[in-house]
């Protein structure tokens, strides 16, 4: 029993990195997603082109490759990042790219009559977007965003590839040391708990935002 508690604690310590990465990515990729989506519908051709290339590259290449590039590739260009910084930046840009597309699609799905109603009432672009359009978008982007939120839990395990001691890596260390698969079982339970919490949060949000349907 002591043994199980010990390795559970060890794996839990590893999961701190996972949680940190999760929270940092969730916050900044959402901000990046909103700004990117607004940029993509801004009508500024240059900006739309840049953002197009950005989402194309980050959605079109493996996340693991992007992590390697940030950690091993950037030093070649004279930019050396700490492992966590490299991982966090990569995750923010990778998930940001997906969210840009999800948010853009959500914004574009709002009826143009909503813009017209806001306009004839005298609202400016910022008021229209932040008070009328984006709040309606939230409900529509929750289901696809929920998928991304769960993917992020699982993708976070990739950071072990650049030596970060995350949840999965902590489990693997003990598996190798003690020659038991018990740590993997514990890790599985951890992942399932985290995913379930996220699913529950999103379900609540969806319910909250469906009051006006």
């Amino acid at each position: 029993m002591d043994y199980i508690l010990n390795i559970t604690f060890f794996i839990l310590k590893g999961s701190i990195i996972t949680f940190k990465l999760y929270i940092v990515t969730a916050i900044f990729s959402v901000i990046l997603g909103v700004l990117g989506a607004l940029g993509k519908i801004s009508g500024i051709k240059f900006l739309e082109r840049i953002l197009g290339i950005y989402t194309w590259v980050f959605r079109g290449t493996p996340l693991l490759l992007q992590i390697f590039f940030a950690y091993y590739g950037l030093p070649v260009l004279g930019i050396t990042l700490q492992p966590f910084t490299a991982a966090a930046l990569t995750f923010i840009f990778n998930y940001g790219a997906y969210l840009v597309e999800i948010f853009r699609a959500g914004i574009e799905s709002i009826d143009k009559g909503q813009y017209e109603a806001a306009k004839v009432l005298g609202m400016n672009y910022r008021q229209t977007m932040f008070r009328i359009i984006i709040p309606q978008t939230i409900k529509r982007i929750l289901p696809p965003s929920s998928n991304e939120a769960i993917n992020l839990v699982k993708d976070s395990a990739l950071v072990a590839a650049i030596g970060l001691g995350d949840l999965l890596r902590a489990a693997k260390v003990i598996v190798t040391r003690d020659f038991t698969i018990l740590p993997f079982v514990i890790a599985t339970i951890f992942y399932l708990i985290i995913s379930s919490v996220i699913v529950t949060i999103f379900k609540r949000l969806e319910r909250k935002f469906s009051v006006y349907e």
Binding site: A117, L121, Y212
Partner: peptide, 24 residues
């Protein structure tokens, strides 16, 4: 408008007070 274009995420009252509050 023909198609009303009410703000669906706002109540009836909120639809009416929105512009006076935000614009005015």
């Amino acid at each position: 408008f023909q198609s009303f274009n009410l703000f669906p995420h706002k109540t009836v009252l909120e639809n009416v007070i929105e512009a006076p509050m935000v614009v005015e």
